[in-house]
Each structure stands twice: as structure tokens, then as C-alpha cells.
Design a protein around this nucleic acid. Structure first.
Lengths: 338, 338
DNA sequence: TTGTAGGCGTTATCAA
DNA sequence: TTGATAACGCCTACAA
């Protein structure tokens, strides 16, 4: 039987109201009383019952993150780093982190978000992997539930967010490829309505234009952000009459699959075919050969999203509702012709 | 203002008690009533308030997992896969998953576990990365809080658990190395009191014995499961008079750092120095060159831990309180001399 | 500066 | 088969 506020009050001969206020730091408490209460509470190991507090305060003191994963058995290390950032920053705030998982755009995704909002399970969300016309941002806005997001999906909505400058990053990457001597570039993207797909593809095209290289629609394949998709895409590509000499991937994970496929086909990444990723996950340093990619400070970004959300939830003036991150080019061996 | 059970009752001209019982499937409700209640509740989008329910039922309907990470900015993909398993399985049960993070053995670790137990924030835990004489298993047992664990730390305690046969795996791995022609093996471990460290090291020694190879204490270095530790260990090793021709790592992440270091030193993994990991995380398929490792079905294991915990929490007869997993050898290029 | 008391939304006990 | 009603533990007007 855990100790309640009653037990503390009784032992001190005080009312529970006094104890409550003393512990919550209200000013109308005698210094001596506050001290005694604080000490005994600690001695007895008192901690306020969460459920009771939530019920009374009408707040869950919790934030939610729904892992957007297609496959229930797989997640790239982007998520590991993201989750570490989320949980670590959350631990420094007076609220909890609730996690679930759902296929993006799926019906169960709606169910989870709706349920969490309705039952007041959490009072804020962190979103990422936004889609064009994402129902989540609209839904949460309508419901008046605060959230912060990585990426920006809806021009009409003004929520706290961090935006990666995908376009600028991609342009830099394409120019890097061009100057390394690659001139027939393919692109392997993700789901077509994903913001990062759209923006990175746009940046890719813009880069080609600046570099004076042609854009060939037949070299523009779609995937689903997994290494498997990258693998499959390469296999499909080999059937083409005029195959590319470099493959730009929407994320690192896709690039891993590409490397794998090239390996199998006896092609040397870098020397024979250039390969690039996006995100700069840890694993990209150790691929065969090390992967050229655009580095994004994933864990740090997650942390900042939590901070933004925390301010939003407490209605504090958020001076910085938007932050832009410029990805950093990590030029490694998969883009060296030697 | 979310809809409460009152609203539903009022609209039907019933008491809240009846509505409550109808929705919870009690038998003493007229069939017709049950139907009407169910329908209207759905129409109105009623969902019981969590906090109120928790307070009344004295259960949180939630389980907790505290990520054991030393560094607040880093986690290997083992955790990504583990978390995916946890969250996916939890989503199929009527409870939530709470996540936090703490340095193993740290004071804040104790605080978090204690706090979560005291405030009834969760009513069960999933543990992993157990240490020898782990206070967590004792603490939770004493408190009567259910938990399931990956690995087994305390012979005196009988909790539902999944155990990886580290010893058998390591023996197989060492024999594989021996038959490939490596005969001076080093070991890079993790924190000394970690169960996986102890067991894998024991398996390593046993394997050496069977293979008729010597065990050299000076070739037994410790790390902290990160790639950085692997990297550093190799650098330290080069100072030795008689350096090893193969490096066995306690986990994949450590091995990644080893590969990195060898690369820098101009050594070819496999050909010059054998390298092995443990866990079989996705990234191990794409290292340079692909890493030989012992594969553990991480995500699936996490799922099973949740199932075990769920049964334990509902006091259902758990026929299978212990499961053993035999890791599968993935012999890849880092152990090929060519 | 402290105490009294009402109520947050549910569930469970007891009558009706 | 249904309805009052009393908790669950905490917070906060308001009164003392």
C-alpha cells in the first residue's frame, strides 16, 4: 500500500490541504511547516498518485509519439536516435513519454491518435514523417491538442516545428556528385506523399538543373525508406537500357540496400556507381564502403521538439516556433571514383 | 470538453452505473439496454477517462521500459528493433507503453524506477541489460511489481524471462574462427558486471578451450557496448607486442568501431584481422565488409517479453516462464581470410 | 497561515 | 435489471 497524502498529513497533525500546498510550493505556508512537511514526505517516500492528480488537474502530464513504421518488425536507427532524444529530453521535464506504433495513413493510426486525444491519455504529441495534406496536423489543431513536428506539411497551420532544409542539402549533394564526375543520376525516393520525399526530390531536380544535368523520369524510382526497397530498386534499374552512374537515395536506409545490391552484382560503390544517403545515421559510417550522406542531428532535433512542445503546452511565449536545420554533407567513399 | 459517461447516461435516461456496466460487459444488463448503450456511446465518441479509471481501479494499465543508455545522444539499432517489438506488441494489449532513459546503475535510474512504482505510473516493467546482482530485479520483486526480463541475473528469483544462450553461441563462433585459421583471438567486452558481458566472455573462453587455443588476459579488453569503445580498444591493442589476428566483440556496435579503426590503420577486416559481433542488428549486413555475427531475433524477443508480462500482470497461468533462444551464426566476410 | 469541503470521472457495492 | 451512492487521491476555492 503506497503512502498517500493522508498518511503524511495525519502523522504531522495537519490537514491534507496544507500538506498539498506545502509540497506544491504555495506561498501561504509557514516556513517551518513547509520544512517539516517536505522532510517527512521524503522520509515516508511519499509521491503523489498520478491518476488522482491527472483527474483533478485534467492533464495527463504526458506526451505521445507514434512510431510511423510500416513493418512491425523493423525500424532503422533513425528511430533509435530519435527516441533517445525524445526520452532523454522528456526525462528532464515533469511529464512522461508514451509510445505506440502504427502504419502511416493506416486506419489504426487514426484510431490511436483519436483514442489518445479522447481519453486524455497525453496532452501533446511529437510528430514526424509528415505527409502532404497530413490529417494529423489538421486533426490535432481542430482538437486544440498541442504538438510539435519535424517537417512542415500544411501552410495554413502554424505549429512549432523544426524544418530540415532538404532542398539546399540535396542541391549541395548533387553538385558534389557532379564535380566528382557522375553525370547520370538516379533517385530512389519514399512514399510519394511524404514531405521528405517531395522536398528531397525537388532539391534533387533543382541540383540537376544547376549542374546542367538532365532529369530522367525513368531513373526516378519510389520505395518505402527501407533497405529492402533500395535493394529492389537497383534490381529493377538494371533492366534499363541506359543505367545510371550514381544513385541518390531519400535516406540512409535505402542506400544500405542499394549498396547490398551493387555488391551482389559485383559493382563497386563509388568507383562504378556513386551512392548517397540522407540522415547521417551512425551506421552510415560503417557501410561498405562508408556512405556519403547528409548529416542531420537526429537526437538533438528530437530533444528540441520536446522543448518546443513543452513550452507550447504550458502556453509560454514561444519565441522560436520554427527552426531550420541545414544538413551537413559528409563526403565519403561511395562518391569517390578514385 | 470530451464526452463523459454522464452525458451518455443522461441522453439515454439511464443511470451512469447502468451505462458503465453495460459497456464493461457485465451480465446483469438487459440485452436491449446493452445494445442501445453501446450504439450511443460509439455515436457520441465516448471513451472512458483514463485517469478516473486508473484511480478507481488502482491500476495504470501501462508497462514501462527504461532505456539503459550511458550516453543521452546515442543508441544502437538494437534498441530501435527492441522498441519496435515492445510498442507493437503492447499496441495489441489493453495497456500503454511508457518510456524513459537512464544510465545503468546510476542514481537517476533508481529514482525513475522507484518513482514509477510509487506513483503507480505503470504496473509492470520490461527489463534488459541486466547486471550481476541487479538491484532492479530484487527491488521489483520486493515491491510485488511484475516484470519480465531479457537475460537472467538472480538465481534466487524466478521471474518470467527470455534467455539467450550466449555461451553456446560464443562457442560456435570461436570454433568458426578457429576453423577459418585464426588462432590468436582478442575479446572486447562491455561493462564488467553486465550479464551479457559475463556470459559471452565465459562462452569465449570455453570456445578457446575446446578449440585448443590459449586464453590471453592481455587480449581481453573492456568497453561499453558502443562503437567508440571498439575503436578505442583497437588503438590500445596496437601497442601490444603480439597483436591478435581476430577480434571478438561483445556486440555488433563494438564491432563497428573495430572495423572503423582497422580501416584507418590500413588493415583489411577478414583478410588481415578477423572481426565478429553479436546481436545481428540490421546494420551488420552493410558494414565494410559485412560483419560476421550471432543473430538474435531482437524485435520478436521484445514482443514475447511483453506477452509474458501481460500474462504475469493478469495472474494468468504462465506455462512458459522461461524461454531460451539460440543465436544463429551469420558467417560473413569479416571472418574470411580468402 | 491553516482547515473544510466539493468534485474531477469511474467503478463497485448495495438496495430497490 | 437498474439506480443511488460511496469511494479512489488529490487540488483548490473559500472560510476560519
Amino acid at each position: 500500500m503506497p503512502v498517500t497524502i493522508r498518511d503524511v498529513a495525519q502523522k504531522l497533525g495537519l490537514s491534507i490541504a496544507t500538506v498539498s500546498r506545502a509540497l506544491d510550493g504555495y506561498p501561504d505556508i509557514a516556513l517551518e511547516t513547509r520544512r517539516r512537511v517536505g522532510q517527512l514526505a521524503k522520509e515516508m517516500g511519499y509521491a503523489p498518485n498520478r491518476a488522482a492528480r491527472q483527474l483533478r488537474r485534467k492533464k495527463a502530464d504526458a506526451i505521445g509519439y507514434i512510431l510511423p513504421s510500416d513493418s512491425p518488425r523493423f525500424a532503422d536507427s533513425f528511430f533509435a536516435e530519435f527516441l533517445v532524444g525524445l526520452s532523454d529530453e522528456t526525462a528532464h521535464h515533469p511529464f512522461d513519454l508514451l509510445i505506440s506504433i502504427a502504419s502511416p495513413g493506416d486506419e489504426t493510426e487514426q484510431q490511436i491518435y483519436t483514442n489518445w486525444v479522447q481519453t486524455r491519455k497525453v496532452d501533446g504529441f511529437v510528430l514526424n514523417r509528415l505527409r502532404r495534406n497530413d490529417w494529423r496536423t489538421r486533426f490535432l489543431s481542430e482538437q486544440g491538442v498541442p504538438f510539435s513536428a519535424l517537417e512542415h506539411a500544411d501552410e495554413a497551420l502554424d505549429y512549432p516545428r523544426i524544418v530540415i532544409d532538404n532542398t539546399a542539402g540535396m542541391v549541395e549533394l548533387v553538385l558534389h556528385l557532379a564535380s566528382a564526375g557522375y553525370h547520370r543520376l538516379a533517385f530512389i525516393g519514399g512514399p510519394e506523399d511524404l514531405i521528405i520525399h517531395l522536398e528531397r526530390l525537388a532539391g534533387f531536380r533543382q541540383g540537376l538543373e544547376i549542374a546542367g544535368l538532365p532529369f530522367d523520369l525513368s531513373l526516378c524510382l519510389s520505395g518505402n525508406l527501407t533497405s529492402d526497397a533500395g535493394y529492389q530498386a537497383v534490381k529493377r534499374m538494371r533492366g534499363l537500357p541506359d543505367s545510371p552512374d550514381a544513385i541518390v537515395c531519400v535516406n540512409d536506409e535505402t542506400a544500405f540496400g542499394v549498396l547490398h545490391a551493387l555488391h551482389e552484382m559485383g559493382l563497386k560503390a563509388g568507383q562504378d556507381v556513386g551512392v548517397t544517403g540522407f540522415d547521417g545515421v551512425q551506421a552510415s559510417r560503417h557501410t561498405d564502403p562508408p556512405l556519403t550522406t547528409l548529416d542531420v542531428p537526429v537526437s538533438q532535433t528530437a530533444r528540441q521538439l520536446v522543448r518546443m512542445l513543452a513550452l507550447e503546452m504550458t502556453h509560454q511565449p514561444l519565441t522560436e516556433r520554427r527552426a531550420v536545420i541545414l544538413p551537413r554533407l559528409l563526403a565519403r567513399q561511395t562518391t569517390q571514383r578514385k
